[in-house]
Design a protein around this nucleic acid. Sequence first.
DNA 1: CGACATTTTGAACCTGTTCAAAAACAGTGG
DNA 2: CCACTGTTTTTGAACAGGTTCAAAATGTCG
Lengths: 255, 255
Amino acid sequence: MTVANTVTSRPCADSEKRLLSEVRVACSQCNVRELCLPVGLTQEELQQVDQLVTTRRTVRKGEPLFLNGDPFTSIYAIRTGVFKTRLTTLDGRDQVTGFQIAGELVGLDGLSSNRHACDAIALEDAEVCVIPYPRLAELALKIPGLQRHFHRLMSREIVREHGVMLLLANMRAEERIAAFLLNLVRRMQARGYSDREVVLRMTREEIGSYLGLKLETVSRTLSRMAEEGLISVKQRRVRIEDPERLRALVENSTR
Amino acid sequence: MTVANTVTSRPCADSEKRLLSEVRVACSQCNVRELCLPVGLTQEELQQVDQLVTTRRTVRKGEPLFLNGDPFTSIYAIRTGVFKTRLTTLDGRDQVTGFQIAGELVGLDGLSSNRHACDAIALEDAEVCVIPYPRLAELALKIPGLQRHFHRLMSREIVREHGVMLLLANMRAEERIAAFLLNLVRRMQARGYSDREVVLRMTREEIGSYLGLKLETVSRTLSRMAEEGLISVKQRRVRIEDPERLRALVENSTR
DNA sequence: CGACATTTTGAACCTGTTCAAAAACAGTGG
DNA sequence: CCACTGTTTTTGAACAGGTTCAAAATGTCG
C-alpha cells in the first residue's frame, strides 16, 4: 500500500489518498540525501532529481517491501527503519543476504531479470522513497553525475558482498560477530548515532543466518565476548567496550 | 602490456605495436557478443558500440589483469581464457570471489571507489577486450539499450553473489561442490561446450577458497562423489555421470 | 497477567580442519 | 627422451569448532 507522508512525519497509520504533490518531498532537503544522491549537481539538476521520488511508502514491521518474483518497477531508498533482504530456496532454507538502514538502497537485485530476486522485509516500521526505475534510467541519461552515482552504488553493493564472502568462507564465529558489530556501528555512526552503542533490530537467528551461524552460536559468542569485556550485551542493546581489541579480532586474527 | 591481435588469432607471443585500427575487431562479429552486448541495437548503434573496444589485451597464465588498488579505468570482457577474482586481507587470508570465463565481465568492482577492489588473475593464457569506462558511460547516455544492459549485468553480479552467500552459509561440502560443478557446466554449455564434461582451470585450493573449504576437503569430496558414481574425475577433467542426482543434492538436500 | 517468541546455557555429536606423508603430475634442462 | 624439482592431489588419523537437541530463563505483546 502506498501511503503519503510529509517530510517530518513519522509513519502515519492511515492517511488514505493524498495528492501526489503533497507527497513529493524534496530529496534536496532530505536528511539522508548525501547517502542517496550524488554531490555537485546544479540547481536545475537537483530539481529534476526531486521529481524522481514521487511516492513514499511505509512498511510495517514484519511486512515485505517486495517479495521474490515480484515484478521489478522501482528501487527503494530507505528513509527510516531497517530492512533485511532474504533469499529462500525451494527446499526451505533461507539466507539473509543483508541488512539495510536509513540512507541505503534496496531492490537493485530486480534489475537483472525484471523481477525481484529476493524478499525485502521491514524489521521495524519503516518509510521508503520509491524511485521508479524507468524514470531513474531516463534521468540518468540526462545527468551524467546521476548515472555515475548509480553505477557507484551498484558497484559498492558488489564490493560489499565480496566482503561477506570473505567473512563466510574464512572467519571464525567470533571474528564474524566482531566484523558484523563493527560494520553496523560504523554505518550508524555515519548517520549521526553513537559509535559505541547499537540497538540490534534483528533477532539472533537473523544475525546467524546472515553470518552463516546458528542462533545458539551467535548467542554464545556474544555472551563470551561480554565476559571478556569486549562488549556488553543487554538483550538487543550492544555496547562496544573495547573497539581496539574488537578490531584486532577481525583484522589480525591469530588463527 | 597491451598486445594487438586479429580476430581469430590465438594469443601471439610478441607482435609488438600494431596500429589501433588493426586491433579494433568488431564486437558485432565477436563469437561471444550475445553474452556481452544488448540485443536489438540498430545498425548505427552497433557501429558505435564497435568503437567502444579499442584495445585487446592478452594476459599470460598466472599474471594479473589488474590488482587491488590499481586505478580503475576500464571494464574487461573476456574473449578467451579463465580468470579468478581474489580478495586478500591485511593478515594474509585470501578469498576467491569468483571465476570468470569467456563472455563474462571483470572489473565492475572498480566503479565503487575508482580503484579496483580485488585482483583478477588469469588461470590460463587469456585475451580480454578493454572497455574504457568513460567511453562506455558516455555511450550509455546515448543508447538507452546499452545503459539498460549494463545495469542488468551489474545486477546479475549482485544476484550471483547472493547465491554464493547462500552456498557458503547454508550448504555442506558435498552440496557446495555439486553446485559449483553444475554452475560451471551450465556456463560452459551456454558457450557451446559439453554439458557433461569440464576441464577445471583452477586448483583444488582455488576451488576450496571459493567454496569456503580446505583443499583436502575438496579433494576428498570429489573422490567420494566419484565412488558414488555421481561424477568421474581424472585430475582436472570432471565428467558429470549423474546430473539428476547431482542436482538433487543441491536442491533437495535431506540434511 | 498469560501466551508466545526469543535468548541463554549445557552436553553430546559431527563435519570439516589440521597435520602429515605419499603419490601423481608438470615443467625444465640436460 | 628422461631425470629432476617443485607443485598439486590424494589419503589417513587426530582434533576442534560449531551444530544439534533439550530445557530453562527472559522478554514481549495482546
